[in-house]
Design a protein around this nucleic acid. Sequence first.
DNA 1: TATTCCTCCCAAAGCGCTTTGGGTATCCTT
DNA 2: AAGGATACCCAAAGCGCTTTGGGAGGAATA
Lengths: 343, 343
Amino acid sequence: MAVNLKQLAQQLGLSQTTVSRALNGYPEVNAETRKRVLQAVRETGYRPNRAAQRLATGKAYSIGLVMPIASGIDSDIHFGEFLAGLAEEAVKHDFHFVLNPSAPDDEEATFRRLAASGNVDAVFIAYMRANDPRIAILKSLSIPFVVHGRSIGGPRDYPFLDIDNTGAFYDATKLLIQLGHHRIALINGPDYLSFSIRRKKGVVRALEEKGLRLDEALVHHSAMTDEYGYRSMRRFLGRPDPPTAVLCSSTVLALGAVRAINQAGLAIGSDISVIAHDDVLPMLKPENFSVPLTTTRSSLRAAGARIAKRLIGGILNRGDYPEQELWRAELIVRASTGPVPGR
Amino acid sequence: MAVNLKQLAQQLGLSQTTVSRALNGYPEVNAETRKRVLQAVRETGYRPNRAAQRLATGKAYSIGLVMPIASGIDSDIHFGEFLAGLAEEAVKHDFHFVLNPSAPDDEEATFRRLAASGNVDAVFIAYMRANDPRIAILKSLSIPFVVHGRSIGGPRDYPFLDIDNTGAFYDATKLLIQLGHHRIALINGPDYLSFSIRRKKGVVRALEEKGLRLDEALVHHSAMTDEYGYRSMRRFLGRPDPPTAVLCSSTVLALGAVRAINQAGLAIGSDISVIAHDDVLPMLKPENFSVPLTTTRSSLRAAGARIAKRLIGGILNRGDYPEQELWRAELIVRASTGPVPGR
DNA sequence: TATTCCTCCCAAAGCGCTTTGGGTATCCTT
DNA sequence: AAGGATACCCAAAGCGCTTTGGGAGGAATA
């Protein structure tokens, strides 16, 4: 049924070598010949056998994924979304995944196993923490990898894709300050994750530029679920000096926060302003909130796809991708932000 | 560094054939010889090269996964948990995954591609709907598969692992009836998914046995998030004739429901009874609820692991697993259920 | 004209396994 | 003692690619 290289070569009156080279972009093939080969491929629907390629090249054509199974991260909605992007791209190139569920305390062993097995050409990791030890481990194992996010401290020369979290929350905070807000709350992700740390830093910086301080009592860290968003916001609103604006590290958190605000009888955009970071989760669009949400936006799925591209490009040595990328999040102003009340 | 079969055979003074056979459990190998081989494997740390095995056997040693990216399912917490179980087992056997994100309307094309690619030996699917067309498609493609859940209607002879959803919710409802409850609400999963349909059926059956009816106004279907649990419960409690007991299709839904109940100033276990289905999500334990939750329990992760076992067992033709399994969910009574108030 | 240098192509040798198709003892039968 | 099982083992042929090491022919150089 499916043709193989040998048959294809025979059919073309060429050697396997030439056909293989034509397909893999080697220069020592006549342009005309290459065109013929490509045409034949189209006609026959030839697809190289991955198992044979693996054996011949020694490449695994697959990438390792260490799934965190710590509580609070485990089964995180955001992880699924990222994964979808990663997979979407990988499937185009016939790349496989080796999924490794692993508790944080034996991630190192998992990496070692993965590297030794030869089952993967590269590894992807996420949920970076401050001084994340995994970078050093992966470097010492000399297995290619790309990090989603960045560590804070530790080595600086490693491949990553991150968004400018500091900048995003700096911009968002600056907007709020311009609108007259001084008491700004932050409902953040887990405090040990570097994106949380950076977002907080962005808020602090914007405030300090105007001689203001971030009240630590108005900062909560938690898993990014709707439930925690609700709880945090309730507690903020229950204070004698509630904030006039709140930043949320995810639209999921914002969902809960908005509920708490509504329940308190406050109007979003006038009584209190809300800005959330939008990972572009298809099931939770900020423009569909009862009051459309001002957001800093960066697609998690796009990041997944990009990382897959870079990993795969690296493995196949094609394409020239930057080692480190810092995506800027867009600040999109909608109705949930307004001037501070009583001004 | 890593030894291969040839070297191992040489070292043992045996042929590759014999060593290979010893390892793969063929009978025509002397027990003593086999022991020697196994010992040598332990000493050298020999591990067969998967790429070579793939090429030689024509097996892919990997399983296809079609990730639903429909809204409401997408990035579902429950999916991640199931996946962890699947992966946990797969990684033990060096099995890979081919992750295929796919919108429901081109799942068929995805299956075809997957089957034709030869990249997978088997496929796994979930989120079964009533009269789910995917079963027929997979059968016609004659690619081995295992379904998590069951369809309703359509062919009956296909491999699945499901829990007895009807039975679980029948039992739960029966318990409530015994406690004197008549007005029982149901916060269910999406209405097109077969587990939702079956759970509802269980409730109806238990009620009807006692000459009672399920009030359709007390049934909500939605994605299984905490937010929807909250909303549904609020609406139930806002009715002139609120329920005295509520069944939730997930502890995630229960989380929201419980919040709504607390907010209404009602006491769980006395004013209102709550039973939830517990998928054993590590981050959400029913015993940790402020009032420990009565549940019907069945571990999603265990189901994932079991399906992986069956899939892999089928591919390697080892182990003899049943084609169809129906797991019974345990009814675990905790403090959230009590006699109907005012009796 | 003789030599070198490209350009374009090929035969054949792996990659590391599984599997086919025997082969050689040894042990029963009759 | 001849014939037939039976128990163990082996050499060699793939699986379908990539890659090495040329080689033929024409163009460019001397």
